[in-house]
Amino acid sequence: MELSNLTTEKRNQASTNLDQMATMEILQTINKEDKTVADAVEMVLPTVNVVVEKIVESLNKGGRLFYIGAGTSGRIGMMDASECPPTFLTDPETVQTVMSGGNNAFFRAVENAEDNEQQGELDLKLKNLTKNDVVIGITASGRTPYPIGGIKYAKTNGAYTVGLSSNKNSLINDYTDQGIEVVVGPEVLTGSTRMKAATAHKMILNMISTTVMVKLGKVYQNLMVDVNASNYKLRERAKIIVMEITNESYEKAEEILNQTNFEVKPAIVMCQTNSTYQEALVALEECKGNVRKTISYLFNKKMER
């Protein structure tokens, strides 16, 4: 598909006089267009559901999730991947981003790097993909060579592949197992897909990573029970989480967390089942880290005695 025919490259009729608008008028125009993004995302939720289920299945088999993209798309992927270890205590290898131009391109654009399809293949090849991995190629236009090269290579290794774009019938999805085509319409600033398209993609990646981690047992109720309490703020959050779930005092929550090296999951299990730290760890291992299942498991075990 020619660039000029892409929805993401068309002119937005609501902003043709953008350069003549008053400041508030520009802001209101952008805001009005941004309101349409959530609706566009809603339209592709059934497809996102399919992708999430596949990622959960793959990660349960020891697989990994990769985002691959160029420019803004790569940066969005990197933002999402980098938040998984502190939020969900995942291994940094579990969710990764492969970005055209390398990690330095996160800070300074390397614009011509996105045109190299072979480099996308070479960069992903360094990750030693397996059939248990999932690769999501992110490209607003749907035709960026770099992620397409990565997707083509991923297919040869049996990895599950997804294309995340903002145009119908995107080229990248000629090569993927599943395409998420979230069509947000023309940008307020023509062709500037760092705006609505990027917002939609960020929303979808938030949904994917968060829902996957919930399904993997890294959330109890709606609380981050696998939070990496690596600083003062996060240690305080860990105490609040334990207090919320167990109704223990601040002092008791702190005491228990000191015993668990500020791991929230075993602290909750200890409080809720009157178990030792070691008993909690063993039970959590048995229940694959799922707090709700662990509490039920220990209760049932004690009832049998």
Rank of each mutant, 00 (worst) to 15 (best):
E2H: 10
S4V: 05
N5S: 13
E9F: 08
E9L: 08
Q13Y: 03
T16D: 09
T16Y: 08
N17G: 12
N17R: 15
L18C: 12
L18W: 05
A22L: 15
A22R: 15
T29S: 09
N31Q: 13
E33H: 15
D34I: 15
K35A: 13
T36E: 15
V37E: 06
A38G: 10
V41Q: 05
E42G: 10
V51K: 08
V52W: 05
E53G: 00
K54I: 00
E57M: 12
S58L: 03
L59A: 09
N60W: 04
N60F: 02
K61E: 00
Y67F: 11
G71T: 04
R75S: 06
R75V: 06
P86A: 11
F88W: 07
L89N: 14
D91I: 07
T94K: 00
T97Q: 00
S100V: 04
S100I: 05
G101P: 10
A105M: 08
V110A: 01
V110R: 00
V110L: 02
E111N: 02
N112V: 14
A113G: 08
A113C: 10
A113Q: 09
Q119G: 02
L122E: 14
D123Q: 15
D123W: 14
L126H: 04
N128K: 14
K131T: 07
N132Y: 04
V135D: 01
I136F: 01
G137Q: 01
G137H: 02
A140K: 08
S141H: 10
Y146G: 09
P147Y: 12
G150I: 09
I151N: 07
I151D: 10
K152Y: 04
T156K: 04
N157E: 11
V162W: 14
L164N: 03
S165Q: 10
K168N: 11
N169R: 00
I172N: 07
Y175A: 05
Y175R: 08
T176M: 06
T176E: 05
T176C: 07
V183R: 10
E187W: 00
S192P: 03
T193H: 07
T193N: 04
R194M: 01
K196C: 09
A197L: 05
A197Y: 01
I204K: 03
L205I: 08
N206S: 10
I208G: 02
V212F: 14
K215I: 06
G217F: 10
G217T: 12
V219D: 12
V225G: 03
D226R: 11
V227F: 05
V227R: 00
A229W: 10
S230D: 15
Y232R: 05
K233D: 07
R235L: 06
K239T: 07
V242E: 01
T246E: 12
N247E: 01
Y250R: 04
E251G: 01
E251P: 01
V264F: 08
V264M: 06
P266C: 07
T276N: 11
Y277T: 09
E279K: 11
L281F: 14
E286F: 04
F299W: 02
N300E: 11
M303D: 09
M303I: 13
